[in-house]
Design a protein around this nucleic acid. Structure first.
Lengths: 343, 343
DNA sequence: TCGGTTGTTGCAAGCGCTTACATTTTCACA
DNA sequence: TGTGAAAATGTAAGCGCTTGCAACAACCGA
């Protein structure tokens, strides 16, 4: 019995008449124990109601079977959905998931990373590639196995399992340009310390740069991801000439906010102005008009990121990142501009 | 140096010329150490880049400073939002959060609970009051401090921090009845093994039972919480007479699904049929018409539940549950029925 | 029957930390 | 300057488990 009255490995070993080593093996690696012995031990475990002590286990084995995840916020359903997938994979492998949020703040992220590592995390799943040297040094010095997701960069030191945000922005911008839009507005997430938001905007800019014939960006707003911010940014964008004929939003929440605002102001979408999103959030098909957007494979991404992280932790060979495909989803919020404006 | 090359408490103690006990105190309870000594130790910690070993710490102190949360799914933004709040509170108290999901399955929940306890969780936050005796016994036998949320029941053995689901259903049903609706349809979550979904439906039924003048329920559909299921349930409810003049939905996702379906079928909301939700999800204000619903204080609930759990773990006196207020949110999806149908 | 394999089990040394208790130091006050 | 209480520190005994190694048993073919 331990200090709290729970039976210990030792109790089980006595009860079953074997050594503690055998009981330990029976718990962790049953094949290593002869069938008859195993049955005896299992009965003892059952009778005593034994459960392994976590601390002893971690201390002796140097593994906690716990992995940490830091996401910007759980208020974004995209992250939450991916988290769900991560949890499922980990759970299937007998691991538990520690979760923390950074609120898009690099320092907070660093704090949370340290807290998770201090809580025994065997590995870490992080969002995005860019982080301060302090954080990267910490990760390297402590040799914390980690995988980055929600982004993809083959050149990254840590494996990335995700998609190319730059590409996502570019694809949707090209779709708009292809329809004849020449004056584009952008409502993006705040790109400071956020490689995903920045990448999306850059992708949009790149599409414009590559386009022929007077295509230009007439305004860029960066704002926090939230329905209400989409609102305000829309107003600012529509406040002064030249008015964009399409507004490319950094994600579906912003786009939905913009549509809501357009509706309230009597601006018709897509007749007066087209609006696009990125993510393919639930909102995208609920809002009216339904959003034309780029589908981000959140579930798959979460699942695969978790798998890659597990490989990385198990140390089985070099682990490579993976790029996931993006898909343009056509709905109703993007249409050809009313008239092609003169150059 | 430990086996992995990291400095240990012992290294620090040698480096600073003090005993390991003093270093331990300096880390866990700095006031107990004289200033000069503390500074010396802190310098040593800094120079060596020491971080406490989690396993050793848990083993010796019998505390992991980790708490576990089991929710049905993170795909429901309501749970995710609450989780965010829980995480913030825990993080502020230096605790980490383990998260697992049950998929609304009691056995899965039990498995996850065991996994979290096996991962060293000092306490547990669970959703809802009802669970199998097996699970309750386990919790009692292992004496796992736990708090229940998303529900409220002063009679529950474990403290509950949440709202009264029965009341939520009743409030919205009364609102509909008050407007003159007599034929009510219900699309609820699956009430088996789900006291919240069951409570909401019962609340609706209770309102009907208490109402005078031929108010009756003309159909009840139970279905999984998802946009598409709201769809189907709507169809079934509208398929045969008597047709309800209002459909009370168990949550906003179902209600939104129903509205989407109504729109697709050319049924006008609320002119032809009113539709209500519960939760006040983001969808509620995005969907057209915007949902009349009951606001569930997810953030507050998460925050308070976490606080109560921390109290419970610290063992400071008897811990009482808390009930949080509900608020009816009037929007556009609920209106008086076209004509009061003859009794 | 014997040596060699293969399969099982036990021995025992920690893993790195906390903490009750003992000891030493400090300091206010007489 | 002496005294006692309070403050600071040290001593050392584990916490419950894993695991490398050694010991032993069972079984094989020669």
């Amino acid at each position: 019995m331990d200090r709290t009255g729970h039976p210990t490995l030792q109790d089980v070993s006595r009860h079953a008449g074997v050594s503690t080593a055998t009981v330990s093996r029976c718990v962790n690696d049953p094949e290593k124990v002869a069938r008859k012995t195993r049955e005896r031990i299992e009965r003892a475990i059952e009778e005593l109601g034994y459960t392994p002590n976590f601390g002893g286990r971690v201390l002796a084995s140097r593994r906690s079977n716990t992995i940490g995840v830091v996401i910007p916020t759980m208020n974004n359903a995209m992250f939450a959905g991916a988290l769900q997938a991560v949890q499922e994979v980990l759970s299937d492998s007998g691991k538990s998931m520690l979760v923390a949020t950074s609120g898009y703040d690099p320092e907070q992220e660093f704090r949370q990373i340290r807290a998770l590592v201090g809580s025994g995390a065997d590995g870490l799943l992080l969002i995005g590639t860019d982080r301060p040297a302090t954080t990267r040094d910490y990760l390297a010095r402590r040799a914390v196995p980690h995988v980055l997701t929600w982004c993809h960069d083959p050149a990254s030191e840590a494996p990335t399992v995700g998609f190319d945000n730059h590409e996502a922005g570019k694809v949707i911008a090209e779709a708009a340009i292809g329809l004849g839009h020449r004056a584009l507005g952008i409502i993006g997430g705040i790109s400071t310390d956020n490689d995903r938001a920045a990448g999306r905007i850059e992708g949009m800019r790149a599409a414009v740069a590559e386009a022929a014939g007077g295509v230009r960006i007439v305004g860029v707003q960066e704002t926090r991801y939230s329905l209400d911010r989409g609102d305000e940014a829309f107003d600012r964008l529509m406040a002064r000439a030249p008015i964009p004929s399409v507004i490319l939003c950094g994600n579906d929440v912003l786009a939905t906010g913009a549509i809501l605002r357009a509706r309230a102001r009597g601006v018709r979408v897509p007749e007066d102005v087209s609006i696009t999103g990125i993510d393919d959030h639930d909102l995208a098909r609920v809002v009216l008009p339904a959003l034309t957007t780029v589908r981000v494979p959140q579930r798959d991404m979460g699942r695969q990121a978790a798998q890659v992280l597990l490989e990385r932790i198990s140390g089985a060979g070099p682990v490579r990142g993976r790029e996931l495909p993006l898909e343009l989803v056509w709905r109703d919020s993007l249409a050809a501009p009313r008239q092609v404006p003169p150059d």
